[in-house]
Simulated scan of single mutants.
Amino acid sequence: TPYNLDATNALNVPEGPEREKLMAELKKLGDRAPSRSSYFGIVDLCGFKKDRFYIYQAHWRPDVKMAHILPHWNWPERKGQVTPVHVYTSGDEAELFLNGKSLGVRKKGTGEKDRYRLVWEDVKYTPGTLKVVAKKDGKIWATDTVTTTGKPAALTLKPDRNEIKGDGYDLSYVTVAVRDAQGRMVPRSKNQLTFKVSGPADIAGICNGDPTDFTTMANPENRKIMKIKAFNGLAQVVLRSRKGESGKVTLQVISNGLKPAQTTVTVK
Rank of each mutant, 00 (worst) to 15 (best):
L171F: 00
L96I: 11
R115W: 05
L96Q: 10
K113N: 14
D44C: 10
W75G: 13
A94E: 04
H59F: 06
K113T: 08
N74Y: 08
V123E: 10
R115M: 06
R117V: 01
L70Q: 12
N74C: 14
Y173G: 01
H72P: 01
V105I: 07
K139G: 06
V43C: 03
D167V: 01
T126N: 09
V176N: 09
L171E: 00
A154Q: 04
Y54M: 05
F40I: 15
A153F: 10
L96C: 12
K50W: 15
S90D: 07
A154N: 01
T175M: 03
G91E: 03
K151S: 03
Y173A: 04
W141C: 06
R52G: 02
L157F: 03
T89S: 13
V178S: 07
D122T: 07
D63W: 06
V87M: 00
E77R: 07
V178Q: 04
K101Y: 15
P84S: 09
T129A: 01
P34Q: 10
K151Y: 15
A153C: 08
F53I: 00
L130M: 14
K65P: 11
T83E: 13
P34T: 13
Y173W: 07
H86W: 04
P76G: 03
A154H: 02
Y125M: 14
A154G: 04
V146Q: 05
R61T: 04
A154P: 03
Y173P: 02
D180Q: 05
V174H: 09
R36E: 11
G80F: 14
G80L: 07
Q81L: 08
S172L: 04
F48N: 11
D122S: 11
T175F: 06
N162T: 15
A58H: 02
K113G: 14
G47Q: 06
K113Q: 13
K124N: 05
S35I: 06
K135M: 10
M66P: 02
T83Q: 15
K65R: 11
G109I: 11
S172T: 02
L70M: 09
D51I: 06
R36N: 15
T83K: 07
K107V: 06
K151Q: 10
